[in-house]
Design a protein around this nucleic acid. Structure first.
Lengths: 241, 241
DNA sequence: CGCTGGAGTTATGCTCCGTAACTATTGAAA
DNA sequence: TTTCAATAGTTACGGAGCATAACTCCAGCG
């Protein structure tokens, strides 16, 4: 993370930046996004006010950094689960379950960070360009899971739309190629992979989002069961082994 | 809405309240939740500052009113779709589709209002008590759709959890009784209805939430197709006619 | 027809964002 | 080792916005 060759100046700077982010995360967890105040972060760190502007251009810049980190963390969690599943020779069905579980576990463990990337429509805030790529990195490991599945009839329209999407936007093909390279020769597999991934994306967003926002309190801890139920439907719909 | 017997004073008051809400909604659509500022609402109305405090205790109170209205509107949209489907003698499968479509249509038509109730985790804001009831009113019409379905094996765990939930929380049974009264005699139907409704809740939250937050821009207009695909899976899983 | 209560006003204090102008430290080059 | 320029930090400031207090004014009620 910290490169020594860049000298003590840069190192110290990076350390402070990370300390700021840490403090900001703490306040985020306590009081929510809207309450994130540069002044308060500074005060909590023993600094005073404008000092933080040396490290982040403004509040949105700090927020962007936190969001970037959250994406990267989520991607790492899912990616690690994928690597483990690979190493253990899991079936597609098991892999789907384990990947989704890793995603959910990360989200529930730090709901405030999840809510940050969950699509939380922060007011005038415009997501930086690299957000799309980072979001795709989170979902990428799901692509190979569905690449060998066969979607049932009810998903035909979605598959068609995915095919169109592939034709329209080159970056989508590149995304598939990066995470499911062994499927490029097949004509239909990329569309299948995309359809399954988009579906799992929506399902994760749905059940994990509701859970992270606290909508399940008072109804047992339904989050896991609900997600598993949805995954079962999805796995069946793709006839995953 | 406005009761004449309460005299001109009360009527005028109610009218101003509603004008405030209207103006606030406009700013909400333009600049997002976080940017909702009492001062700016007042200025746009030609009033100045503290005048609004006659009508709303504070910013959160105004927000609460907007959220309440949004829930009621959504419930009305879904409820009306249910009434129409009833009148036309739709099959459960068709009803599911039409109810979900009505929900989505309302949400996409006014995304800012949808995002308000979507679980948008407003910072220190705590939802008033009646929120739960209003949320349930939105989803209630889905209950009878699933009451006569038969959930497939993969949903067993979820059904069990719903049964537990029914046993623990009386209000849940009352909710089912209100929207699907003809099912009370049956032992399993209420759990089935709940399982289906919770699933459709999560699916709606997933796909409509992503669409409303703008995550589908640049991939065709996938919102409708995605939702339909999910509904097909769900209808199949409950063997809906 | 008086008067009370509600509508609206200005004034004030607080918090926070973000900029400007300044000081002091310290790493790095000569 | 000495100098010096970049960097970390400071106080001072102006602008928004929330919320309260104290006031004026008017209209509907009795």
């Amino acid at each position: 993370m910290v490169r020594a060759q860049e000298g003590p100046r840069a190192r110290y700077r990076e350390q402070t930046r990370s300390e700021i982010k840490q403090t900001a995360l703490g306040q985020l967890a306590e009081s929510g996004v809207g309450a994130l105040a540069l002044t308060r972060v500074a005060k909590e760190m023993g600094l005073s006010g404008p000092a933080l502007y040396r490290y982040f251009a403004n509040r949105d810049d700090l927020l962007s950094a936190l969001i970037r980190d959250a994406y990267d963390d989520a991607a790492a969690a899912v990616g690690q689960a994928a690597a483990e599943a690979e190493a253990r020779g899991r079936s597609p069905r098991e892999r789907l379950r384990e990947l989704a579980d890793a995603y959910r576990a990360w989200a529930i463990d730090e709901p405030h960070r999840y809510l940050l990337i969950q699509g939380a429509p922060v007011p005038g805030y415009v997501a930086p360009d690299d957000t799309r790529g980072r979001a795709r990195a989170v979902l990428g490991p799901f692509l190979p899971v569905f690449a060998n599945g066969t979607p049932e009839a009810g998903l035909a329209a979605l598959v068609v739309e995915m095919t169109d999407w592939l034709a329209e936007d080159e970056s989508v093909g590149a995304w598939v190629a990066e995470y499911a390279p062994d499927v490029l020769g097949d004509l239909r597999a990329p569309s299948y992979a995309l359809a399954g991934t988009v579906l799992v994306w929506a399902q994760l967003h749905g059940s994990v989002g509701l859970e992270a926002a606290g909508n399940f309190t008072g109804m047992g801890h339904g989050g896991g069961t609900l997600l598993m139920a949805q995954l079962n439907l999805l796995a069946d719909a793709f006839a995953l082994r």
